[in-house]
Each structure stands twice: as C-alpha cells, then as structure tokens.
Nucleic acid binder design. Structure first.
Lengths: 209, 209
DNA sequence: ATTTATATACCTAACATTAGGTATATGAAA
DNA sequence: TTTCATATACCTAATGTTAGGTATATAAAT
C-alpha cells in the first residue's frame, strides 16, 4: 500500500528537492503539490485526497497553521506533517495545537524524512530530533496527561491570577503566602505545561480554561 | 420621575449605610437589596426591575463581574454602577469590559454618589475621581478612539510579537532594530491602550485583534 | 512654515520573572 | 510503610520589563 502525499511549500525549489528525495521510495507517492494552503484545500475539494499533507508553516495567502486547522476540522482522517525552516517553540506548539501530527525541520536528511512519514502514517507523533528540548517536554505534558488533572487547585488559582496580571508579590499578599511559594508554584506550572513565559501562560489559559 | 435602584453587597452594614444616604433623596428609590449577584438575578426574574444596579465587585456565590456580564446580555437597558473597596486598575477594567457604566470607590461622599447615579442615569459614564489615572487613560483610549486607528503599523507588529512571547531582545534582532527602540514602542503601546503589563497586552490582543 | 505623528535610539533605576537549586510537612496511594 | 503528590518556604544569579527621561529624522497635516 503506497502512502499518498501532498506537498505544500511556497518555494518551488524546495518542493522539487523533497520530490526527488521521496520519488525513489516505492511506497510513497506524491499525488499533488501546492504553493500555499488555499491550493491544498482546493485539491481536497476536488477529491484529491492524500494520506499525509507535508506542509510548510509560513506561506502566502494561507499559511500552514490555518491549513492545518481547517484540515483537522474538515478532513480529520488526513494527517498533517509540518515542515519548517524554523524550530522556534512557538511555531511548533501552534502547529500541534492546530492539529499537526508531527514537525520536521528542513535540514533533516532523507532517512529521517522517511521515518517521519512512516511514523505519522502509523498514527504516531513525530518530531525532528533537533527541535528544542522544551517542545518534547511540552508535548509529553500536554498530550499524555489529561488537561483537567494537570494543574492542582493551587496552581490553577495562581494561573488565573497571572492571567489577571497580578505579580508574584501581589499574589503572595492576597493569598497570604510567601513570594517564594508563589514562584515555586509558577515553576511547577511552567514544567507541567511546558510553557516558560508569562505571556505564553496567558495564551494557554485564554484558549484552554 | 424617581430612579429605581437595587443595591448588591455582601456586607449588610454597607447596604444600610448607602440606604441611609440615598433615602433622603426624593428622586432615588431603593426598590430592593441583595447580598450577592445571584440574588439580584432572582429579583430581576421576578419582575423587580430597577434603573440602576449598584453592585459590589467581590461577593460570594456570584460576584459583581459575572452579574454585570449577565445583566448586560439579558437586561441591556439596566445600568450597572460598580461600587468597590478596591481601586485597582484590573478590577475597574474588568467591570467596564463586563458592561458597567461607572465605577465608584466605597470612600466617596454623599454628593459624589448622587452625582454618579444621576450621571449614569443620563447615559454617561462615571468614575470616582480618586481612581488611578491610567483608568481614565484606558477608558478614553478604549472608548473614544476607534480601535483600528489606535496603534500604528509598527506598534501592532510589536504587539503581535509580544503575544507570541518574544522578548524585547528577540524582537530587536528579528526586526533589525535597537532594543531601545522596541522598548520605546512598548511604552507607546502601554500609553495608548492604558495597559501597563505584558499579560494585560496578551489579554487585550486575544480579545481585540 | 510650524506642528503633529511616526519611527528611531539611548540611558538608568526599580521591579518582576525565570531557572537553578534545596528543604519540610502532610495526606493519599501502592 | 514507603513512595508520591501537593503545598509550603528559602536562596541566588541571570534575564526581562516597566517607568522616567531625552533626542533626532522624516513625512504628513494645519
């Protein structure tokens, strides 16, 4: 059984490179290509349905994140494998939140790309091993533990106060605890969610709570 | 024409104080009182409809913010005037966002309370003059100037990066500008929106952009 | 032609967060 | 009963934000 793939990237040169790498595989078939997300959606609407969409994140007209969100909603059987120049945590997390099943950087080699495709095809997640460590942390915490049991009462309470813009010192006074305690809770929240910054926590909370 | 008022506060003593102040006015009629937001909603459901709800922010069972949100949605003709011990910016902004038409602190005097009630009754906003200055800033910017003209291109760009969790230094490198420039833009954003903290900006951006 | 808005850059002090620890007490689960 | 989860508290160094300024250049508006 061959794996059907659509490639989406705004750099034609890169599409060609991927094609030449994958064309040598008996079990992988590139059934179409596109230069932005909208073109992929058009292909899907015309009944050109792949097993995996291999897509760049940043593209004109419609980017990979929007594409992935739409695909996850309307074609939930299709798997999206993100492919990007960038390995910044925020990009990876956004793609995963949009519903991507894996994330590889553009400097991966031939064998790793094959592995990624086959792994995702089997229903597992795949990540380039050169992605920052905190992504793996985030992924494990975020996906293997049910969200509502993730944070303790106290941690949720503190997260809510962080979202409201309270500082550690204000929270300490309000809850009649030491500032050190608040900061310990913060660190535990960071660890559990795999999110290190205050702004990231607000993002998380407004989307998930 | 008398102005009908419901007072909501979990401190009975305070309700009594307000009542004794307002009972001397010919044109103000306290038609009911409540000790939390839920009690107010029950009164409304039973057809006891005031012109103005004078409510505390922090109350057990249902707080003033939740009450105001429900009233704004289901009884949009009623005006909510917030009454609080606290004059923290975040409280005021939350009440205003919930739909309150004014905000007075509990240390106002008799004549100011009258003025507040009459001003709100006429359809204007009212704020205690002892509220922090940045609230007036926030209010003016937020309500009198159309949102889409408020921030310049550059400022919007930087706000978006802040939401994504980028630091000043990261943004400086990415945009090939000095960190000082980024910080200047930040300060201008703070001034224009009347929001001073990073977390507040993320809140604002996710709700308004 | 002068003012205003935008964008840029610099400086410093105060405050806040983040990351790296360690440590103790309590109650619930294995 | 020992381990695990939760909640508490302390310490320090590095990094980042916020608030107070000043200052320059350019383009648009009055």
């Amino acid at each position: 059984m061959t794996i059907k793939i659509i490639i989406a990237d705004d750099h034609q040169l890169f599409i060609d490179g991927i094609k030449s790498i994958l064309s040598k595989s008996f079990d992988i078939d590139i059934i179409a290509e596109a230069n932005n997300g909208l073109e992929v959606l058009k292909l899907l609407k015309h009944g050109i349905l792949p097993d995996i969409i291999l897509t760049d994140i940043r593209m004109p007209i419609m980017d990979g994140i929007s594409l992935t969100k739409t695909v996850s909603k309307d074609y939930s059987k299709l798997k999206v494998l993100a492919l990007s120049m960038f390995d910044q945590t925020i990009d990876v997390i956004e793609m995963l939140e949009a519903g991507a099943k894996g994330y590889v950087t553009k400097n991966i080699d031939k064998s790793e790309l094959h592995l990624a495709i086959h792994t995702v095809m089997k229903g597992h997640y795949f990540f380039s091993k050169n992605l920052p460590k905190d992504i793996q942390d985030w992924f494990h915490k975020e996906n293997l533990i049910p969200n509502d049991q993730l944070l303790t009462k106290r941690e949720t309470e503190i997260l809510e106060l962080i979202v409201k813009g309270r500082t550690s010192l204000q929270m300490a006074k309000h809850l009649k605890l030491s500032k050190y305690t608040i900061d310990t809770h913060r660190k535990n929240i960071h660890k559990k969610l795999g999110i290190k910054s205050n702004t990231g926590l607000v993002n998380y909370a407004l989307k998930n709570l």
